[in-house]
Every structure is written in structure tokens, then in C-alpha cells.
Design a protein around this nucleic acid. Structure first.
Length: 478
RNA sequence: CGGGGUGUGGCGCAGCUUGGUAGCGCACAUGGUUUGGGACCAUGGGGUCGGAAGUUCGAAUCUUCUCACCCCGACCA
């Protein structure tokens, strides 16, 4: 059915122009639109529902780890931001500042939160008196504003939605453990909900969060070989606690500052799943966050009994707890097939006269394009199992893709070759800032994470050739 | 902020060199025929060409200025 190709909705060739492909897909599938203010995005219902499923899955996990949700104000007095030296330096260039209300100039300028450590610390200093108040485990869902120079929907926008956890602990071990635990929560979430494989580890000094002692990160690999920092957790030490005078009286009668963590993931995750799973036909959504898990398409709907049977099938699946859409719009079936593939629905069921005669529904998987039939009587049991299989297959694909695109490199020649092949580079590094900066300047790749498993992959720094002790993943990134 | 590019119905584009007051595809609307991989026919609605000034009898087209957006670099979840 080539026709003249003139009715085909074109999506850019992802192998040739990945950024364009990304933009085409998110706009054409009605995930987002551009906002009127440069760098902002409108998340449309189809995209927002993905976010809701992400929120639901994370909230469930936060509850299990003892965290409570709360909400703090969006406006933060500028003076708060100034209290932690590294923090100001890191965020000052990109904060939006409120200076006026109407025509009146404000006595104290307000920043629109780029992150909430400072205002939350201010409140924590009032709430914490005793070691009995600790640990304090709070999360908030909010929007934050960071006026970045270049933006792209989901990946980097001037305003974005996220979740930020902020905790206080009596001991360093407990706080560091919390940061590591939440990183593991994120990793498990990526594995079991978004079906994305990630590398986890520690950020270098250069790349860590402004104000943190240590930053842990998970990095996902996009289909063009770039890395996307998909979530971070921070061990903040006492940096903020002392700056904001959060103090408690310990059992030993001493007044102490607690140890602190913060951690977050954002709507960037939606960008991650688009760029980690998509293909030439468009989105490929993992079933556990897909707004429409199963689309039911009546074939030859004008024939007697077809619409009725399709409706019945959709109802059966809804009762089985699935998110189902019956697409009975007045379009050709081919058009609908293509549309739902582009929109990433994991599973399509077709109900036509032939199927009804045979007592089956025809299915087509979005992940493998495999087709088959399921007996109508078995739908409620088999479709959920099929969705689980799609999830596992998608994770497997993500896992294999990442690990087959990591190259161990010992010198810059290998390094550059690996980057050209869209691989992550695993290499040794001497640990000095000069080499890290030089590598970034020359190759546009940055040190993404130092894996927890520091098994050496050589003995010399990939850049300067001096003895090296750190194993690092380098990659170009979003 | 440095380098490159683009602005013409909702979207994608043609027209510009050789000025003569807009055209195509998609989308949209109505009617009909269709429907197992992006259907077809007919009819119809919608733009004054990013903005301003200038040249000219006449400007989407030429000149100058300006604005906006996009891509590549420096900054970042």
C-alpha cells in the first residue's frame, strides 16, 4: 500500500537525525507541545498520564521506605540561596528572580525554586530539636525552574516537574546509606516499571550536585549512544545543616548538626523512555506506564456483530484491570494501526468477522511486531501475561543494548573510536580535574559515573597515561 | 554570547534570481462510496506572505533596519 507516500505521516529517520526524530515523535503523538515562553513545555493529557503512572509507582516505593509527602513554597528568599556557598555558585546563573509585585519593588528578592534544599532546611531547623525527631524522611512533588540556555522538551526545560526527597539523619553512615538506598529504589523502578537498564555509580567532583559531599547517579543509554542522567541521589553531609543551623540534642547531651540527603527524578524520565525504547514507527511505551496498554480495533465495523464483540472484549479487559481503548473512530484500520504504533500502545487487538467466526482476537505486539491470536475466552488471563512478557522483552532489549555498547578503552585513540561507534567508554582515570576537563573539551564526552564496582580495566589514565586508580564511564550526554 | 540557517492558511512546502496584489500536499467541513496495514470521488471554508520603513504606477519578490524561532558550541535533572 505504498500509494504516493503522500498521506504518510512522516517521522524523521532516527538513524540519520535522532534529535529530529525525537521532536517529531513527541509532537505528533501529542505528548507535549511547546509553551508560549521559550524553553517551556505543555504536557498534554497523553504525556501527563505517563507521568501519573510514574508518580504512582514511585509513591508506592516511597511509602514502603517510610517517606511521607509534603509541600513547600515555590518562592524562596534570595538570602536562603546565598547561605550555602557552593550551592549559590551552582544555581545562581539559572534562577528566575522575582523582584517586583505590581509596581512595587520587593524588599527581599525571591527566587523561584530551582530545587528546594534551602527552604526545606529552613523549615527543618524549626522542626528538629531532638534525636527523637530523626530520621526525618520527606518527599515533595513539585515544579522547579532552571533557566537553562538551551532546552528540549522533557530533557531540559525551563520549568519541569519532579519529585525531591529530603532527609535528615543522626549518623553519616545512615545518611549515606539512605542516599544509596534511594538510588537502588530508582534503579529497581527503572528496571521494573520503565524497563530501562541503567548504570549506577558516583559522580566526579566536577559533575556532582552543587553543595553535595557525594552525588550518586543512574545513567541510561539512549538509542543514539548518548547518556541521560535519569536520577540522582545526594549525600549532603552537614553542609546545609550547618549553614541553616539545623540542630538537635543527642542522647549524649551534645548539640549536633544532622547528616542530610536529597534525591530526585523528573519528567526527564519520560524523555528517557522515549529515547531508550522508540523505533522508526514512533513511541514504544513500556506497559506499566502506557496510558493505553491495549488498543482494541474493530475490523470491518459495519458488518453485523463486530462493534458489539469489540466492545465486549474491551470491557472484559477493563474488568481485568487493564487500561484499554476501543478505537471505533471512522478511519481505516490501516490508519489506526499506524497511529497506535506511533503512539506506542504495547498491544493491539483486532476483532473482525473472521476472528469472531473463529472465536479469537488477533494481536500484534508493539515491541517485536509479533502477531498471533488469543481465544476470546482466555483474554482476561492471557493479555496481562502478554503485557508482562512485553515488559520483560523491552527490558532485555534495553539491557543488551547498553551492555553491548560499552567499550573498555586504554588510550584516547580507542576512546574516540568508541565514541564514533556510539558507545560508552569505560576507562581508567587518574582523578585530576585537568584530565577530566581536557577530555570533555576534546571529545565532548564527560565523566558520567564511577561505578561502585571499581574493578580496574587498566592501570593508566586514558588521557595522560599516568598511573590511575579510578574506573569511570565516559559518554556524550543530554 | 560566538558560528550557521529559517520565517508564506493549523502542519509541511513552492513562488523570490527575471516585481504585476498567492499556489500545492496534508489537515479541516459537507455528501456519497468504502473498511484485515496510513481509502476514494465531489464540493467547500481558511492566508495577503514575521514586523517596520524605503524604491516603484505596482512588492511575498528589490533595499535597509528590526523581531522571532531553529541548529552547532560554553552551562545543566
Amino acid at each position: 500500500m505504498e500509494k504516493d507516500n503522500k498521506f504518510v505521516q512522516e517521522i524523521a529517520d532516527m538513524t540519520e537525525d535522532f534529535p529530529r526524530w525525537y521532536t517529531d515523535v513527541i509532537l505528533k503523538t501529542e505528548l507535549v507541545d511547546y509553551g508560549p515562553v521559550k524553553g517551556t513545555m505543555v504536557i498534554r493529557p497523553y504525556g501527563y498520564e505517563i507521568w501519573e503512572h510514574i508518580q504512582e509507582a514511585l509513591n508506592k516505593r516511597f511509602k514502603e521506605t517510610g517517606h511521607k509527602n509534603a509541600y513547600f513554597p515555590m518562592f524562596i528568599p534570595l538570602s536562603y540561596l546565598m547561605k550555602e556557598a557552593e550551592h549559590v555558585e551552582g544555581f545562581a546563573p539559572e534562577v528566575a528572580l522575582v523582584t517586583h509585585v505590581g509596581n512595587t519593588e520587593l524588599e527581599e528578592k525571591l527566587v523561584v525554586r530551582p530545587t528546594s534544599e534551602t527552604i526545606i532546611c529552613d523549615m527543618y531547623s524549626k522542626w528538629v530539636q531532638s534525636y527523637r525527631d530523626l530520621p526525618l524522611l520527606i518527599n515533595q512533588w513539585a515544579n522547579v525552574v532552571r533557566w537553562e540556555k538551551t532546552t528540549r522538551p522533557f530533557l531540559r526545560t525551563s520549568e519541569f516537574l519532579w519529585q525531591e526527597g529530603h532527609t535528615l539523619h543522626t549518623t553519616e553512615e545512615e545518611a549515606r546509606g539512605e542516599a544509596l538506598k534511594m538510588l537502588e529504589v530508582y534503579r529497581e523502578f527503572m528496571r521494573n516499571v520503565l524497563a530501562i537498564e541503567v548504570l549506577t555509580g558516583i559522580k566526579t567532583e566536577k559533575e556532582k550536585f552543587a553543595g553535595a559531599v557525594e552525588t550518586y547517579s543512574m545513567e541510561a543509554m539512549m538509542l543514539d549512544g548518548k547518556s541521560l542522567q535519569s536520577g540522582t541521589t545526594h549525600f549532603l553531609g552537614k553542609n546545609f545543616a550547618s549553614a541553616f543551623e539545623i540542630k538537635y540534642l543527642d542522647r549524649d547531651g551534645q548539640i549536633k548538626n544532622p547528616y542530610q540527603t536529597s534525591w530526585g527524578v523528573s519528567t526527564r524520565l519520560i524523555g528517557a523512555l522515549i529515547m531508550a525504547h522508540g523505533d522508526q514507527r514512533g513511541l514504544k511505551l513500556p506497559p506499566r506506564v502506557a496510558p493505553v496498554q491495549v488498543v482494541v480495533i474493530p475490523v470491518a465495523a459495519h458488518k453485523a456483530g463486530v462493534t458489539e464483540k469489540a466492545t465486549e472484549v474491551a470491557d472484559t479487559l477493563r474488568k481485568a484491570g487493564l487500561r484499554v481503548e476501543l478505537d471505533d473512530r471512522d478511519q481505516s484500520v490501516g490508519w489506526k494501526f499506524n497511529e497506535w504504533e506511533m503512539k506506542g500502545a504495547p498491544l493491539r487487538l483486532e476483532i473482525g468477522p473472521r476472528d469472531i467466526e473463529n472465536g479469537v482476537a488477533a494481536y500484534s505486539r508493539r515491541d517485536t511486531h509479533e502477531k498471533g491470536t488469543i481465544k476470546l475466552a482466555d483474554l482476561a488471563a492471557e493479555v496481562p501475561a502478554l503485557l508482562d512478557d512485553i515488559h520483560e522483552t523491552m527490558y532485555r532489549q534495553s539491557h543488551d543494548f547498553l551492555h553491548s555498547h560499552v567499550t573498555v578503552c586504554h588510550d584516547m585513540k580507542e576512546f574516540n573510536a568508541a565514541l564514533d561507534n556510539k558507545n560508552f567508554v569505560k576507562a581508567m582515570w587518574c582523578g585530576c580535574r585537568e584530565c577530566e576537563d581536557a577530555i570533555k573539551a576534546e571529545t565532548a564526552a564527560s565523566a558520567r559515573v564511577m561505578p561502585f564496582d571499581q574493578t580496574p580495566v587498566g592501570d593508566k589514565c586514558v588521557y595522560c597515561g599516568k598511573p590511575a586508580t579510578k574506573t569511570v564511564y565516559f559518554a556524550k550526554s543530554y
